[in-house]
Computed example of a mutant assay.
Amino acid sequence: MRAAFASRFDDADPLAALTVGEQPEPTHWADDWVTVQVVASSLNHHDLWSLRGVGLGEDRLPMILGCDAVGIDPDGNEVVVYPVIPDPGDPRGTSLLSEHAQGTLAERVAVPRSNLLPLPDKLSATDAACLPTAWLTAWRMLTTMGRVDEGEAVLVQGAGGGVATAAVALALAMGKRVYATSRDEAKRERIAALGATAVPPGARLPERVDVVVETVGAATFDHSLKSAAPMARIVVSGATAGHEPKVNLRRIFAMQLQILGTSMGTRDDLAQLLAFCAERDVRPVVDSVHPFSQVSEAFARLHSGDVFGKVVVDHNR
């Protein structure tokens, strides 16, 4: 079957490590696993990190990339694939598709049957394919960890990427006042068009916020602390611009701030996210849709750093 996979690692030029070609049919790890015919998938920075060799050993090459997928199950049902699988061989007890088990950027993918959720009627396959990783992470950051229902104002650092842009769209759909930072003026204009107040990094906000969505790291963390209201939650799911920020501990205890780490979400979280998007008519912010025949171009688009929202791959084209 055709697939996009890591054939080697290249930290300096991850796109050079990407191969598009034939790979064996997916393997079932247990009796409860099924094979899904993939209809649509989306890319994540996790895929670029894999091509760099982060979190992936040479003993697992070649590895089909991709965490997100919408497809057709063996009974002919349209399904969304939850990408976290039980994995006794991983210290976490679980792993993402494309870490140990082959990923979704292929004609077919194998997963436990319990990882399949019905595709809501109101969501297209290409829209739903954006949700299982980046949007699920943003959903959990806002709800379970950030307890956004207890607050009115949200700050999203580094909007433009998949998780941050998802957090902006979801928080707005929840009726919150949303502030979002970006170094790129064009991205700030697009953020404002979504309904958020867009500001340059480090800009003083007109109010302190109850929840901060932090995916940038050291470059923005001091601003996150200074922008937080008393007893606010600063939820961290990434550190693309440094993972060792200087932290003012006096501000944390004086303001009674909570710094919370999170990654991905549960299957139930994904079910809630799918229902929320269908009921509230929330659609993912899509940067571009590429046919599978141009999956290399999709990776190049993600790697460019110019993306706003999700890069999607249509497997039917």
Rank of each mutant, 00 (worst) to 15 (best):
residue 159 A to I: 10
residue 88 P to R: 12
residue 16 A to Q: 11
residue 167 A to V: 05
residue 243 H to I: 14
residue 111 V to Q: 07
residue 44 N to D: 14
residue 136 L to W: 11
residue 187 K to Y: 07
residue 219 A to N: 07
residue 280 R to N: 06
residue 128 A to M: 04
residue 137 T to Q: 07
residue 49 W to F: 15
residue 204 R to F: 00
residue 36 V to W: 09
residue 86 P to T: 08
residue 246 K to A: 15
residue 119 L to V: 09
residue 245 P to W: 08
residue 255 M to D: 15
residue 132 P to I: 11
residue 35 T to L: 00
residue 109 V to I: 08
residue 253 F to N: 13
residue 140 R to L: 01
residue 25 E to T: 11
residue 131 L to A: 06
residue 139 W to S: 10
residue 39 V to Y: 00
residue 261 G to F: 01
residue 191 I to W: 08
residue 310 K to M: 02
residue 241 A to L: 06
residue 113 R to E: 08
residue 237 S to T: 13
residue 39 V to L: 15
residue 218 A to N: 07
residue 232 A to R: 03
residue 191 I to D: 02
residue 287 D to W: 03
residue 266 T to A: 12
residue 278 A to K: 04
residue 156 V to D: 08
residue 248 N to S: 14
residue 16 A to E: 12
residue 303 H to K: 00
residue 34 V to P: 04
residue 200 P to S: 03
residue 52 R to G: 13
residue 221 F to K: 07
residue 3 A to F: 12
residue 88 P to C: 09
residue 233 R to T: 06
residue 15 L to G: 03
residue 176 K to P: 07
residue 249 L to V: 15
residue 144 T to Y: 04
residue 78 E to I: 02
residue 14 P to S: 05
residue 177 R to F: 00
residue 9 F to D: 03
residue 97 L to Y: 12
residue 100 H to Y: 15
residue 53 G to A: 05
residue 94 T to M: 13
residue 46 H to D: 02
residue 141 M to V: 06
residue 310 K to I: 01
residue 263 S to V: 15
residue 298 A to T: 10
residue 161 G to W: 04
residue 265 G to E: 07
residue 139 W to C: 05
residue 116 L to P: 12
residue 217 G to I: 05
residue 77 N to S: 15
residue 295 V to N: 10
residue 44 N to E: 07
residue 17 A to M: 05
residue 107 E to I: 04
residue 25 E to I: 00
residue 76 G to K: 11
residue 106 A to G: 04
residue 87 D to Q: 15
residue 32 D to Y: 00
residue 225 L to D: 01
residue 298 A to M: 08
residue 43 L to W: 08
residue 196 A to L: 09
residue 283 R to S: 14
residue 68 D to S: 05
residue 119 L to N: 03
residue 272 Q to N: 14
residue 138 A to R: 08
residue 72 I to M: 13
residue 133 T to P: 00
residue 212 V to Y: 01
residue 162 G to W: 06
residue 81 V to C: 04
residue 45 H to L: 00
residue 258 Q to C: 12
residue 246 K to D: 15
residue 82 Y to I: 12
residue 307 V to F: 01
residue 81 V to T: 04
